[in-house]
């Protein structure tokens, strides 16, 4: 089993390497001239030349890639084009803010969604299942910003219960931070819960239709015992995968929600970078997001291996 896990971790690292190549390639080895693209069509030949030298664009792409990767591994992403500030220094507090928001939402969403998903599955076809189905269907159909602005409209404008902008600063006390970030966190929670609930429900249902569950009923076991002893241990693997998939979705949802609530996180930072065509910033943020994504999936896979008796106890 250790071998299986080791292989999975190595695979994760390889994926990360592939991701870094892809991010670099998507920004720098595109057909056409990067300098012109960044500076716009109206740039004079002189400015273009200065810019090319500054970025080292005259050197081969693979050397620039290796330098970039080498820096990234040591926590150095260079400086931003627009304000010449060190990217890592600017990014760190924003990354913390984003992790705080995502963690906040995950802490509410995961137990809520998994609990409700299991409940809906074991009450398949009953009113609670139908309600959960319709409500979650509506929730996954909402664009993030719709929910965000609805919240602002009702809870910040109509009733002044929460601030409409989630402004945080580094010395903010935790209780105040929790209060200020509540609206974006709840927004994210709702969106992620809906997806996670639906997927948890269907993976539990897949287990419930297994012959060994029928056998458990025919053994005359109580409903609770069938669910908790016979169904859930087998559903653990699929549920872990579902949770990881949705936490990954959370990472993306964060970008839009940060924009709605003007929250100083890494998503906002990246969107800013994109609109200002600040290449190093975009690359750095992209890599951070992708790394979070890959790490989540790898951890989920390793956990799934750990809970699978077939892999835990080979023949």
């Amino acid at each position: 089993m250790a071998r299986t896990i080791a292989i999975r971790v190595v695979l994760g690292l390889l994926t990360l390497l592939g991701v870094s190549i892809l991010i670099f390639a998507a920004t720098e080895i595109l057909p056409g001239d990067v300098a012109t693209a960044v500076l716009g069509q109206g740039a004079t030949p002189d400015t273009v030349r200065v810019f090319r030298e500054e970025l080292g664009l005259d050197r081969p792409a693979y050397i620039r890639y290796l330098e970039w990767l080498g820096g990234a591994v040591q926590g150095d992403f260079g400086v931003a084009l627009t304000n010449k500030r060190d990217i890592v220094k600017t990014m760190s507090p924003k990354l913390f803010n984003t992790l705080f928001l995502a963690g906040y939402a995950a802490l509410i969403a995961v137990p809520l969604a998994v609990g409700l998903g299991i409940l809906a599955a074991i009450k398949e076809g009953k009113w609670i299942d139908r309600t959960a189905n319709i409500v979650s269907l509506a929730a996954i159909s909402m664009p993030e910003f719709f929910l965000g602005y609805l919240f602002i409209f009702f809870f910040a404008v109509q009733n002044r219960w929460f601030p409409s902008l989630a402004t945080v600063y580094s010395s903010m006390p935790l209780d105040k931070r929790i209060y200020v970030v509540a609206m974006p966190a709840v927004c994210l929670t709702l969106l992620v819960t809906a997806h996670m609930l639906r997927m948890t429900r269907s993976s539990v249902l897949a287990i419930m239709s297994q012959p060994y569950i029928e056998m458990a009923f025919l053994k005359g076991l109580s409903r609770a015992r069938v669910i908790f002893v016979h169904a859930l241990p087998n559903a653990a693997g699929p549920i872990i995968t579902v949770v990881a998939l949705n936490l990954a979705y959370l990472i993306v949802g964060v970008v839009v929600i940060e924009s709605v609530f003007v929250y100083p996180g890494i998503g906002q930072f990246m969107v800013d970078g994109v609109s200002k065509r600040d290449l190093p910033v975009v690359q750095a943020c992209g890599l951070v997001f992708a790394a979070a994504f890959v790490i989540l999936n790898t951890v989920a896979d390793v956990l799934s291996i750990l809970v699978n008796p077939r892999l835990r106890k080979p023949r």
Binding site: P211, Y212, E214, M215, A216, H230, P233, N234, P309, R310
Partner: peptide
């Protein structure tokens, strides 16, 4: 009850 497929009727987790 004794089912046709024992492999499917035993819970793999226990």
């Amino acid at each position: 009850y004794i089912a046709q497929s024992a492999a499917a009727s035993f819970n793999p987790a226990h």
